[in-house]
């Protein structure tokens, strides 16, 4: 089975995001980067799918700049077989990203393509289903667990207030959310082995973005917390404030 996992390099959630003075974008200085948390789940899912079928290979793929090599190397150390860096400008336009990824995938005709349900920076939840549409693959989103048997994948996906069990035939795209795929840690052996693995870099032309940023700003500040008095009186006061001031009760 040919498996591809798409990962994205994103700012660490704990990093402070500072905007440029003119609000035209984010100040890149001092930002610490990680692999988007959901993409770690997607990679883990890919590695587990590979383990069920000896002859499988896992390719990790990203659209990003040279620094994303670090994230791809980590994935190789965890057990991916190959890595592809599509060197180009990262865009907020999900379809532009999807087009670049899908184009590269066509030459590989993968059986299974895994995505995080959403990227930690843009949080658009678009790229996975868009790639599926462009490749004309079946698509299951928001998956917490799945199992591949022959050419059928049985997926458990989260829906409002419950779960749905869905069966699809390969080839398929799956977007993974937090569930059974707790990421593994790299082993020393894995790290050593990764040094011999191939990381291919290709320059790509990213289509023009159809989402034009006209400005960025910080969300409005809250007024600050009002701490009610200790004890039972405080609780009565809280209820009164929620009703009369905040008007939410």
């Amino acid at each position: 089975m040919e498996i591809i996992a798409c990962i994205k390099r994103v700012p660490d959630t704990e990093t402070r995001i500072k905007l440029l003075e003119d609000g035209s974008g984010v100040n890149p200085e001092g930002i610490k980067y990680i692999t988007s948390p959901y993409d770690e789940f997607a990679l883990e899912a890919a590695l587990r799918a590979k383990e069920t079928e000896e002859s499988s290979t896992v390719t990790v793929m990203t659209l990003g700049n040279d620094e994303a090599q670090e994230n791809l190397r980590n994935a190789l150390a965890l057990g991916a077989d190959e890595a592809t860096l599509l060197n180009g400008d990262v865009t907020m336009d999900g379809l532009a990203t999807a087009k670049v990824l899908a184009q590269e995938m066509k030459s590989k005709s993968p059986d299974l393509v895994l995505f995080g349900v959403k990227a930690g920076d843009d949080d658009q939840q678009q790229v996975g289903p868009m790639v599926a549409t462009l490749l004309d693959y079946r698509c299951v989103t928001n998956v917490t667990n799945f199992e591949v048997q022959e050419s059928i994948v049985t997926c458990k996906r989260q829906i409002e207030g419950g779960n749905e069990v869905v069966e699809v035939t390969l080839p398929a795209v799956i977007t993974v959310t937090k569930g059974e795929f707790e990421p593994r840690f790299p082993s020393l052996k894995g790290i050593m082995a990764s040094k011999k693995k191939t990381l291919v870099t290709k320059d790509v032309q990213v289509p023009e973005s159809h989402l034009v940023v006209t400005g960025m700003e910080y969300p409005p500040e809250r007024d600050g917390v009002y701490i009610v008095e200790e004890g039972l009186e405080g609780v009565s006061e809280l209820v009164r404030l929620l009703r009369e001031e905040a008007k939410v009760l």
């Binding site: 959630t13 995001i17 907020m92």
Partner: peptide, 15 residues
């Protein structure tokens, strides 16, 4: 919102 709600972005569509 971007970055887990730390920033708001305004976007104009061209398609």
């Amino acid at each position: 919102a971007l970055y887990g709600g730390k920033v708001l972005v305004r976007l104009r569509f061209t398609a």
